[in-house]
């Protein structure tokens, strides 16, 4: 059996979006388990159990799911993608927020950004949600350290 752990938005039609490409490829789905107790920030983890597959077909499924914007967090309990949160404190905007995001995007993907600026002279805070391949996590952390030194930003990480 194959276990696919996905992260879906908590809205109607999301599950169908995930299941359609699998059934279109003629693959048998044993079960779908909602891990609602692990729900966080509007995302619901879902585990899909499939029949045994060869490596190539499995890779194809994962690719198709990712193409349709679905986050595959684990394949057979092996972490593939991580969803991490970061709160950044500093002069986030004045230090070229676009450049900050571009540089983080070299190793991951900033998918959500929330910003608060209490006062023009005070430090602002931003919250970012970043999706990163587990193999790129160390590089992403190194880039954060570089940004932190160059731009005097404090990255508070969720991991």
């Amino acid at each position: 059996m194959i276990l696919l752990d996905l992260e879906l938005k908590d809205s109607p039609g999301e599950l169908l979006k995930a299941l359609t490409p699998i059934s279109e490829m003629g693959i048998n789905i044993h079960s779908v388990i909602h891990l609602r107790e692990k729900k966080s920030d509007g995302k619901v983890p879902v585990r899909i159990v499939l029949e045994d597959l060869d490596e190539e077909t499995l890779e194809k499924i994962v690719e198709r799911l990712e193409e349709s914007g679905i986050v595959v967090t684990k394949v057979n309990n092996k972490v593939r993608k991580m969803d991490i949160d970061v709160v950044v404190i500093g002069h986030v905007v004045d230090t070229d927020i676009r450049d900050t995001i571009d540089r983080l995007n070299k190793y991951g993907l900033v998918v959500d950004l929330d910003l608060t600026m209490p006062h023009p002279f005070k430090e602002s805070s931003a919250r970012m949600r970043i999706i990163v391949d587990s193999k790129n996590l160390e590089d992403l952390c190194r880039e954060m350290e570089k940004l932190s030194k160059e731009k005097d930003l404090l990255f508070i990480k969720s991991f």
Partner: peptide, 13 residues
């Protein structure tokens, strides 16, 4: 360097 705004941001997530 922690600010109340940063804590609110964290809480939101």
């Amino acid at each position: 360097r922690i600010t109340p705004e940063a804590l609110t941001m964290a809480n939101k997530g």
